[in-house]
Simulated scan of single mutants.
Amino acid sequence: MDYDEDQGRRSIAEGDPLPPDEWNGFAAGTRVEAIYTAHGPELARYFRRRAPAQDVSDLVQECFRRFTQSRGAAASLIDRPAAYLVQTARNLLAERARADGRRMQADHGSFDEDDHAGPDPHAALEARDTIRRLADVVARLKPKTRTIFLMHRLDGLSYEEIAAAQGMSVKGVEKQMAKALGAIRRSRRDGR
Results as ranks from 00 to 15, higher is better:
80 R>N: 15
34 A>R: 14
30 T>C: 05
66 R>E: 01
69 Q>I: 12
85 L>W: 02
75 A>Q: 06
53 A>W: 05
59 L>T: 03
51 A>D: 04
81 P>R: 01
62 E>F: 02
69 Q>P: 01
51 A>G: 07
39 H>T: 02
62 E>G: 04
30 T>G: 06
77 L>A: 14
73 A>C: 11
73 A>S: 12
73 A>D: 03
32 V>S: 02
44 A>M: 09
32 V>C: 04
87 Q>S: 10
79 D>S: 14
81 P>C: 05
53 A>Q: 11
85 L>P: 00
49 R>F: 07
36 Y>S: 01
62 E>D: 05
32 V>E: 01
44 A>L: 05
69 Q>Y: 10
31 R>W: 09
85 L>N: 03
31 R>L: 15
64 F>Q: 02
77 L>H: 08
65 R>Y: 02
88 T>K: 02
30 T>R: 12
92 L>Y: 01
65 R>L: 13
49 R>L: 14
37 T>R: 08
89 A>F: 08
82 A>E: 11
76 S>D: 13
50 R>M: 10
78 I>C: 07
67 F>G: 00
66 R>I: 01
61 Q>C: 08
73 A>G: 10
87 Q>N: 14
32 V>R: 02
80 R>H: 14
59 L>S: 01
48 R>F: 05
86 V>G: 00
86 V>R: 08
54 Q>A: 15
33 E>Y: 04
58 D>H: 05
68 T>A: 12
66 R>D: 02
87 Q>F: 07
65 R>S: 10
48 R>C: 07
39 H>Q: 06
56 V>A: 02
33 E>L: 15
85 L>E: 02
81 P>V: 03
52 P>S: 14
64 F>C: 01
56 V>K: 01
53 A>M: 09
57 S>V: 14
32 V>H: 04
75 A>N: 05
90 R>K: 15
87 Q>I: 11
62 E>W: 00
44 A>N: 03
75 A>R: 08
77 L>W: 09
77 L>S: 12
92 L>W: 06
85 L>H: 07
34 A>G: 08
42 E>F: 04
71 R>L: 09
31 R>V: 15
45 R>S: 14
35 I>R: 01
49 R>W: 09
61 Q>F: 08
71 R>I: 09
91 N>V: 13
48 R>M: 10
69 Q>M: 12
58 D>G: 14
91 N>Y: 06
74 A>D: 07
51 A>F: 10
78 I>K: 11
55 D>G: 05
36 Y>W: 04
45 R>G: 11
87 Q>M: 09
72 G>W: 03
51 A>E: 08
81 P>M: 06
35 I>E: 01
59 L>A: 02
34 A>N: 11
92 L>N: 03
92 L>C: 07
59 L>G: 00
44 A>S: 14
71 R>E: 13
68 T>D: 04
45 R>F: 08
56 V>T: 06
57 S>K: 10
48 R>I: 12
44 A>G: 09
70 S>L: 05
91 N>E: 07
69 Q>D: 09
44 A>R: 07
42 E>A: 12
65 R>N: 02
50 R>I: 06
49 R>G: 14
38 A>V: 12
35 I>C: 02
86 V>S: 03
71 R>A: 15
